[in-house]
Amino acid sequence: MKILVTVKQVPDTATKIQIRADGQGIQEDGIKWVINPYDEFAIEEALRIKEKQGGEVVIVALGPSRVEEAVRQSLAMGADRAVVISTDAAVDPAAAATALAAVCGEEGFDLILTGKQAVDDDSAQVGPMIAANLGLPQVTVVLKLEVDEAGHRLRAERELEGATEIVELPYPAVVTAQRGLNEPRYPTLPNIMKAKKKEVRRVSMDSLSLALDPRVTVNRLFAPPERPEPTILSGEPEETAKELVRLLHSEAKVL
């Protein structure tokens, strides 16, 4: 079974983000970049399917030259090879999905796995849009995935609010991973060494000749407003309770 995993490189969630002076992006200097954690679940699931059923796991990534690091780390986890769509441009979800779908289509596959969303812009659109672009069935926010090779079908459990939905679908398909699907492995030293020798094919985004006019443009990013200093009431409980009710009613207007 040939599985493609689309991987996005994102700032480490522990990194302190600074907004660029033009307000349209973040300052990238000094940021620690990591594989999008939801994509790690997708990589792990792909590797487990391969280990059980054989086949190939190919990473497909998109972005500037820094994404090679995330690609190398994905290969060190055990993926077989990678395709990188190189671009220095800011790419909106539709453009990313169009480019990724084009490369996936050309590469050929039985299954596309990716994270349910990326933890940088949290748009959660790229997976579904790849499926739409390729005319494939999709199942998102997946917590458990079973592959029935004989029947050529997938059985997925996906998370709903307060419930689990079980979905059966044929493949090729697109599946997006939720935290809890598995526990991603860490690379072994021999796999870190092997990763350097694995094939990474680079495709320039321009060479794909796609119409990638952005549907979303970022006008301005701004930090959430600082929280005002809290009001701490002191005194007798009877008095402070009354004062609290008054504040909630007339100041905060929640009562």
Binding site: E69, R72, Q73, A76, Y186, P187, T188, L189, I192, M193, A195, K196
Partner: peptide, 15 residues
């Protein structure tokens, strides 16, 4: 790159 990847690998393990 190798040292970078080693550092990341050990951090992942130690986590």
């Amino acid at each position: 790159n190798l040292l970078k990847d080693l550092r990341q690998g050990i951090r992942d393990l130690c986590a």
